[in-house]
Each structure stands twice: as C-alpha cells, then as structure tokens.
Amino acid sequence: MLATVHAPLGFLLHLADSALILGQRNAEWCGHGPVLEEDIALANISLDLIGQARLLYQHAAAVQGEGATEDTLAYFRDVRAFRNHTLAELPHHGPLAGTAAADRDYATTIVRNFLTSQFMVLRWEALARSADAQLAAIAAKSLKEVRYHLRHACDWLVKLGDGTPHSHARTQAALDHLMPYTQEFWTLSPDEAQALQDGTGDDPRALRAAWDEAIDAWLHEATLRRPAPGGHLPRGKEGLHSEHLGYLLSEMQSLARQHPGARW
C-alpha cells in the first residue's frame, strides 16, 4: 500500500491563512456595501473564502495532530504565526487615508480581489494536481469558487476604471497602491519550497507569465495603467506582517479567546 502524502504543515497554513484573512476583510462590507446586490455578493465571496480556509485548516490540523483543530489554528495563533500574503490583510483604503478606521474604498476592495483572484485561479489549477490527494480535492473545489470571484472583480474593475473620471482616478490610485504587494506572489517561502520539492505544492514563479498576461488584458479594457514594478517586498507568508494584521486578528479572535473551550 502506498503511503499517504501530506503537504507540509506550513504550506497548508499559508493557503488557509490567506483565504481566511481575505475572507475576513471582504466580510467587513457586510451591511455596508455600496448597493444591496454588492453587499450580498461580497458576503458570498467571504463565505467561499472562509469555507476554503476551514477545509485547509481541518487538513492542517490532521497533519499537525497534538489536539489541533480548525478553531485552534484560526483563533489561537498570534500574528507571527500567520502565513497569509500581506496583500490580504491591508485595510480597504490607500496609505494616505489615515488609520484603518478610515472610510472604506470599494475600488481598493475590487482591485485587491482582482489581483488575488487571478493569482488563485492559476494556483488552484496547479494544486489540483498535487501529490496530496486531499489538497488536490480542496483545490478543485476552490477553483470553481474563485473563478466566480475573479469574474465579479473583473466586471467591477472595468465599470470603475472605464467609468467616470472620479471612479477611474480612484481605481488607478488603488492599483498603484496595491500592485507592489503582488511581488510576494513570486517569491518562494521555505514552506512553498518544501512543498514544491515533495510534489505537494506548486511553483508560483511558473504562474507569473500567465498572470501578467491576464492582468494586462483586463487593465487595458478598464483603461488603467499598470504601475512600474518595484517597491518594498512584503514577507507576510514568512510571518513578517504589516501593522494591520494585529488589529484584524484582535477583532476576529476576541470572542474565542474570551471563552476558550466554549461550544456553540
């Protein structure tokens, strides 16, 4: 009998954390969407992402053992233990808006979902061939969901970018702010390198050409200018985060930490 192959724990946590944190961010629009339809759409996208995170955390908990559960992994790890992309944790506004409590900017949300969903479509396609059968199944399911997320983001990117001068300017500003954070997509963390070596992971560097082509095509349709490359290289998937993740986790984890062991 062939031995069961599992992806490295750190790689599973990277995938789970990225989905959870982006889901939490999108969920902040619940009850605050610009129109009712978008309020519902963002809530559904959040539920998809949190559902993906749950499957990945369940798998990671089984790999870790030692009494770990999806709840302990989501609610009882601190900032440095999280492995999500930095892009996922940023608030819904640019760097000049002041604090994280500033008014949300829908253009920022749409651009982030556009950049991330295009990457995850390619990543889930690759991971559907993982040597880890359970991860491959999660990837196949997640791929169907993230294709919808991408379609939603692309539709709005074009509406905003090729809309009024005001909507165009705000969308371009969001793109200028967020695009540098995508550099993290193309660097291999130690967890990703280990997963690639054992056949359970993918090589994100191999996805870059397809991502660039798709991104450029949609930006052209949206009449947006792609920012010049460069800037600080984020390292969220190595546990080095922006100041924003701590505030997000404090809110997300507060109830579970106030009542550890509670059953709902």
Rank of each mutant, 00 (worst) to 15 (best):
M252N: 09
D71T: 12
F119A: 03
E238S: 14
S46E: 07
Q24Y: 14
A102R: 05
A41Y: 01
D132L: 10
S142Y: 06
Q183S: 13
Q253K: 10
S167M: 05
R129Y: 13
D39G: 09
H244N: 05
P180A: 06
M120S: 12
H32Y: 13
A206Y: 04
H149Q: 11
A61K: 07
T223M: 13
T164F: 08
I45M: 09
A61L: 13
L22V: 10
V35L: 15
L240M: 13
S242H: 11
E89Q: 05
R225E: 14
D132C: 15
M1A: 13
T182R: 01
I138A: 04
S242Y: 12
R226C: 09
A137F: 00
N113M: 09
R151I: 04
L12R: 10
L207C: 06
L22Q: 13
C154A: 13
A131L: 11
T171E: 07
Q258G: 15
K141A: 11
L150G: 03
W264T: 15
L96V: 04
R123H: 10
P165W: 02
H32T: 11
F185P: 04
N26R: 11
P190V: 06
A43W: 01
G31V: 10
A7M: 12
A195G: 08
A74K: 05
A16G: 02
H6E: 03
M120A: 10
S46W: 05
D202K: 06
A53D: 02
V63I: 00
T200Q: 06
N84Y: 00
G239S: 02
D216P: 04
E192K: 04
L240C: 13
D162Q: 08
G98F: 05
G31A: 01
P234W: 03
K141T: 12
L87A: 08
C30I: 11
A173F: 01
G98R: 04
Y75L: 09
W186V: 06
L47D: 00
P227M: 08
E66P: 06
S117T: 12
L160T: 13
L175D: 03
A88R: 10
L178R: 08
Q183A: 11
A68E: 14
R54C: 01
D176M: 05
M179V: 10
G201R: 03
A101D: 15
